[in-house]
């Protein structure tokens, strides 16, 4: 039986791991390679590196970092942040990334998803969607945001998810901007609506504060995988302990 994946996320700025609250006020929390190795030994099923500077001058920094991580851990690596072309993606795949995550670039040029899927295979192409609830809207509705959450678009997140799957994305990394950084749980409604409407795996992201939150996203939220950053960074709940909890709750988990 396919296990539910527990994914540790590392937001990288200028070569350091940082974590913010609701996409702002970043805190520095460590050396990426050291942290990646710790997560690997603790049993993380995958690692996601998001380059949140993503300015041109830091591309090379990220590529070098991916190489060092790929030499040190033997689990899948996804890398995203500021990628605009098939060539950008190819460079990181050659550095040892297994999957590439597109966000703003996919919204600006959806055909990039298809081109990447044709070139590298759908399994390499993750589309990250940053979604924010439309206040006081019944039924619930979420809009896609770009540029690290700073620019609202008119795209409906659920429709956009269906479209990226159609275009050839192999997986969706779905972040609730409302929940992100608050550690009060994932946006279960958002996760469930997207996870049950697309034929590809969905990773729930944003809001993890406890192992119970991960459990809810994987059960009520129907997510195929859950991603968390801060609860693992600050060792409040180690990955090992979190996976034990999920296992005892009856989920299929790699331990």
């Amino acid at each position: 039986m396919l296990t539910k994946r527990i994914i540790a996320c590392l937001d990288v700025k200028d070569g350091r791991v940082v974590k913010g609250t609701s996409f702002e006020s970043l805190r520095d929390s460590g050396d990426p390679v050291e942290l990646a190795r710790r997560y690997y030994f603790e049993g993380a099923d995958e690692l996601v590196f998001l380059d949140i500077t993503a300015s041109k001058e830091h591309r090379a920094t990220m590529a070098a970092l991916v190489e060092r991580v790929a030499d040190a851990v033997f689990i899948p690596l996804t890398v995203g942040g500021g990628l605009n072309s098939v060539e950008d993606m190819r460079r990181l795949l050659l550095c040892g990334a297994d999957k590439i995550s597109l966000n703003t670039a996919a919204v600006k040029q959806p055909e990039l998803i298809s081109r990447a899927a044709e070139r590298f295979g759908s399994q390499c192409v993750v589309v990250a969607i940053d979604a924010k609830r439309v206040p006081e809207h019944e039924p619930y509705r979420w809009l896609v945001h770009t540029y690290g959450g700073s620019v609202a678009t008119s795209l409906d997140a659920v429709q956009w998810a269906a479209q990226v799957a159609e275009l050839g994305a192999g997986e969706i990394l779905l972040t609730s901007m409302d929940a992100d950084g608050h550690r009060a749980g994932y946006d279960i409604e958002l996760t469930r609506v997207v996870a049950t409407s697309v034929p590809i795996p969905v990773i729930a992201s944003g809001g993890a504060g406890s192992p119970e939150d991960l459990h809810r996203a994987l059960t009520d939220g129907k997510a195929d995988a859950v991603l968390a950053a801060s609860i693992f960074h600050y060792s409040e709940f180690a990955i090992t302990q979190t996976k034990e909890y999920l296992h005892h709750k009856g989920l299929s988990i790699r331990r």
């Binding site: 039986m1 396919l2 296990t3 099923d45 759908s122 034929p199 795996p201 195929d224 995988a225």
Partner: peptide, 30 residues
């Protein structure tokens, strides 16, 4: 099921093999 099959799943031995030395049956592989 969702395709691609993506993630960790158990490898169940059909026959004995020295390829599996030291690896418990039904271990998860990616």
């Amino acid at each position: 099921h969702k395709v691609p099959h993506m993630g960790w799943n158990q490898v169940h031995y059909r026959r004995d093999s020295a390829l599996f030395d030291g690896i418990p049956n039904d271990s998860n592989f990616y």
